[in-house]
Nucleic acid binder design. Structure first.
Length: 354
DNA sequence: TAGGCGTGGCT
DNA sequence: TAGCCAAGCCT
């Protein structure tokens, strides 16, 4: 099968079986495609749909996003993960409004220089939003191409990535590139799935080297896994009489960067110094059930403590902490397990009030 | 180049 | 249950 035939079959398949009703496929603009592509990085379509709608409701244009506060954007990202995407999103929104007059540049090079946009996301914006010929190489395309060409090697290795990018560039047609790229993603998401691919329905089965050998499950070569380190931390839920709970802002980089969180302690011995810093008188305390939270690179066991406090004046910077009212919550970014704990603590508090 | 960076769904 | 995986990018 020639490269042109491959592309033609994908395009025909897309028109019959592809996805055409995703939110970012309606009222297509570079802005909407860009936001969707950032949200979809390492994140499944089903998870993104709700977030995308709320985001567009609040920030309908690159200018409204550029002017928004960090807390407001992080609030709408809470639970989606990879929060550095938000910092990069805001930086790029600024650059587009200030330096590009509100229009996205129309080249891979210029797009990929923007924070948070790499080669594949640049290709997606160019092809899907602008109709220009540009290749993409996301997880779906990698899987389709690795199987079709029976290419071994983990795609995270530069050598394997170079081979796959070369294939992607060769197969990507200069006409109808948007439909073709969407077809490759949809084929990977619906037929050429990681497990139990539906090869019987595949439009390019006849040229697929993995299918010919019955070795679909060998591609792409999986990432070499190491056992995840296990960490543990204490999270004091300092609750005032009025039900408000102490939150601290996390540093901009690192895990949960820029989000609001409960304080994190290594040991219970660190509780007194922390209480002193905030000038808290500690009352009754009770341990709540352990929470296990899993990240891509470590596992965290959280030991939450609900602690009643009386507060007096302290000298901690105002933008470093706040008293969060669960019954009248401010709009800000919260780490997922912290959001769960706050709900739980509010429940306990409400029961006590009855 | 390898590792940091989240979360939820699925098996 | 525990591991795998998802429309990757940055340092």
């Amino acid at each position: 099968m020639t490269e042109a035939q491959f592309a033609a079959r994908l395009i025909a398949w897309q028109q019959q079986h592809g996805r055409k009703d995703l939110p970012w496929q309606q009222q297509v603009t570079a802005y909407r495609v860009w936001v969707s592509e950032i949200m979809l990085q390492q994140t499944q379509v089903a998870s993104v749909i709700g977030y995308f709608g709320r985001f567009m409701q609040s920030f309908p244009s690159v200018q409204t996003l550029a002017k928004a506060s960090d807390d407001e954007v992080l609030h709408l990202w809470t639970g989606l993960g990879y929060y550095s995407r938000v910092r990069n999103l805001k930086k790029t929104a600024h650059i587009i409004s200030e330096q590009y007059g509100g229009e996205f540049p129309a080249s891979v090079k210029a797009l990929a220089e923007l924070p948070g946009i790499g080669r594949s996301t640049a290709g997606a914006i160019l092809s899907l939003a602008m109709g220009l010929p540009a290749a993409i190489l996301d997880g779906n395309v990698k899987r389709v191409l690795a199987r079709y060409s029976a290419t071994s090697g983990w795609p995270g290795e530069s050598k394997t990535a170079a081979i796959l990018w070369d294939l992607a560039e060769r197969f990507t047609p200069t006409e109808q590139t948007a439909i073709y790229n969407q077809a490759m993603m949809d084929l990977g998401a619906t037929l050429c799935t990681p497990k139990l691919p539906a090869c019987a329905e595949c439009p390019v089965q006849s040229g697929c080297r993995a299918f010919a050998r019955g070795s679909q499950s060998l591609y792409p070569t999986p990432k070499p896994r190491k056992t995840l380190p296990q960490k543990r931390s204490l999270m004091p839920i300092f609750a005032r009489k009025d039900g408000c709970i102490l939150l601290e802002r996390r540093p901009p980089a690192g895990i949960w960067g820029g989000l609001w969180s409960l304080p994190e302690l290594d040991t219970i011995e660190a509780l007194e110094p922390l209480a002193q810093r905030y000038a808290l008188d500690l009352g009754e305390r009770r341990a709540l059930a352990l929470i296990s939270h899993s990240f891509s690179h470590f596992r965290l066991a959280i030991e939450p403590w609900l602690i009643e406090v009386n507060e007096s004046a302290n000298a901690v910077a105002e933008d470093h902490y706040l008293w969060y009212d669960p019954d009248n919550p401010k709009r800000l970014g919260l780490a997922a397990p912290v959001a769960k704990l706050l709900k739980y603590a509010a429940q306990i508090n409400r029961r006590k009030a009855l």
